[in-house]
């Protein structure tokens, strides 16, 4: 089924259309804004790769990491400095940018800067967060909570719609499989697509092993490429992956973030598979519902 199309970005940036028959969009960047210089360096490197591959990019970096496992973990540069950096980066690179927010009061100021407002998975059903996200007036990237069934995400999209937001991208970032382990149930893509919203696969958080290292999360990066290929073949509209130039020393999600040296190959494969799926759809039409 074809989804609605959401447009991320305005005339000041290279806007990205997600859904329908549009090219696979890539949402990526470092997990956290570690510093202005590092964020700019990552934006430059990510944009260069996306330009070479021909994949539309929405640059992602967060100013506050509110779900870290340890109180001593890096929490972020904070909303004021973070939004300043994102605003400058947006102007300089002409890229649409996105960040999440974890406190309702942060939604509107964040949406004044970013083109796409991300709702963290853990907060995906919180009414106050969804009301705040809708008030931002920007398209919303809503991640399926690791504890949520894909069909229950419809409740969250209905809340957003009731609050005035009908431009929503739904993401899978894995589902808890017992303690400290996530798995991907690829049925979630057609199920979440039934809401009419485009869907996205989060390839780096999906391989996370939440808090498996005691006070930090582990991960199995070796599975990123195969999980991404499977998701794209299944049918997604956007791909999300966090990247870093030095994963072992990343200040956030060091065990899951993708080394940027691998990004190009993964994007080439993802783009190719997405185009093949669209070609098949055009040639043979939508699949019949099998009952």
């Amino acid at each position: 089924m074809k989804t609605k199309i959401i447009t991320v970005g305005d005339d000041d940036v290279k806007s990205v259309a997600i859904g329908g028959d549009n090219p696979l969009a890539y949402i990526g960047g470092p997990c956290a804004i570690e510093s202005r210089d590092h964020c700019f360096k990552m934006a430059e490197a990510t944009k260069k790769i996306c330009d070479e591959v021909g994949v539309p990019l929405i640059f992602k970096a967060c100013y506050d990491k509110d779900c870290r496992s340890s109180p001593s973990s890096f929490h972020g540069v904070g909303i004021d400095e973070g939004l300043e950096i994102l605003a400058e980066l947006r102007r300089e690179f002409g890229l649409p940018v996105t960040s999440d927010f974890s406190v309702p009061e942060w939604a509107v100021p964040t949406a004044e800067v970013v083109d796409f407002l991300q709702v963290p998975a853990y907060l995906c059903r919180q009414t106050s967060i969804l009301r705040a996200a809708a008030a931002g007036g920007k398209p919303v990237h809503l991640k399926k909570g690791q504890f949520m069934s894909p069909w229950n995400m419809k409740n969250s999209t209905r809340k957003l719609k009731a609050f005035g937001c009908d431009e929503v991208l739904l993401s899978d970032r894995g589902t808890f499989f017992g303690y400290n382990m996530l798995i991907n149930d690829y049925r979630c893509f057609p199920i979440m697509r039934e809401t009419g919203n485009p869907v996205c696969f989060d390839g780096t958080h999906s391989i996370q092993m939440p808090t498996s290292m005691g006070d930090i999360s582990g991960g199995q990066r070796e599975f990123i490429p195969s999980l991404v290929r499977a998701a794209v073949a299944c049918g997604i509209d956007a791909l999300f992956m966090e990247v870093h130039d030095d994963p072992p020393n990343a200040l956030s999600d060091a065990n899951t973030v993708l080394d940027i040296k691998h990004l190009k190959r993964i994007l080439i494969e993802a783009k190719h598979l997405h185009e093949t799926r669209l070609e098949l759809l055009e040639k043979y039409g939508e699949e019949e519902t099998i009952l």
Binding site: S149, W151, N152, K154, N155, I191
Partner: peptide, 8 residues
């Protein structure tokens, strides 16, 4: 599953 059918 009932939980899925219920929200159709």
């Amino acid at each position: 599953p009932w939980a899925a059918l219920f929200v159709d």
